[in-house]
Amino acid sequence: MLDCHIIKHRADFTVDVALRAGVHARLGIFGDSAAGKSTVLACLAGIETPDAGYIHWDGQRWYPPPCPLHQRRIGYLSQRERLFPHLTVEENVLFALDRRQRASEEVWITELRAGLGLDTLWKKPATTLSGGQVRRAALARSLCRRPPLVLLDEPFVGLDRPRIRSLCGVLCDWQARLGFTLLLVDHDPAVMRSLCETVIIMQHGRIASTCAARQLRADAQEPPEPACAD
């Protein structure tokens, strides 16, 4: 279970957010630009250190003091996630797995490749990929070792709507089967409704309200399908 209270001072406002998310929960963080959504995820991942508060995950204390990044078993996809430029797509995706794990996870790796449309890109150097392809490969890399907590910061930037729809379906399926806790930051209400059960809406660094994802106002022109089963 994730239990955190993150306080992080910014130049013009303070992010002050308390969250609880149970195992297998799908929680969305929604709000305007510069509301502090990405800061919350970055603090959970350990990329940024909170100024105060606490972060507990599954009996472990991640803050304070800051827990080293490699000890946090998470899948994190930041807004500017990049692939390792000296490796191929395959080497990027399998980066966290040793030889033995690669053999034992062969079925899961095949599923990741197919689900994220990486089959034709698999042997390509990372530097030759387009922005959308990089996002998909980076998503595969973050999910490859089946982390129990997945933090996605606008995972579908640069992808077209049919692809987003397809990826939402795949992610829903994997979340249901693998049972990871999902925290998603996105601007798209349709993506939120598709992937999350509950959504917190942030304004100026604080939680303004919480609602069921299906109640989120439909600003998007076309809702993605399929939505996760409740």
Binding site: A45, G46, I47, P68, L69, H70, R72, R73, I74, Y76, S78, R80, E81, R82, F84, P85, F95, A96, R141, S142, R145
Partner: peptide, 16 residues
Amino acid sequence: VPADLEQSAALLGLKP
């Protein structure tokens, strides 16, 4: 060497 790549590797479980 971009620090974000080293952070990504750390978040994938690699020690320094």
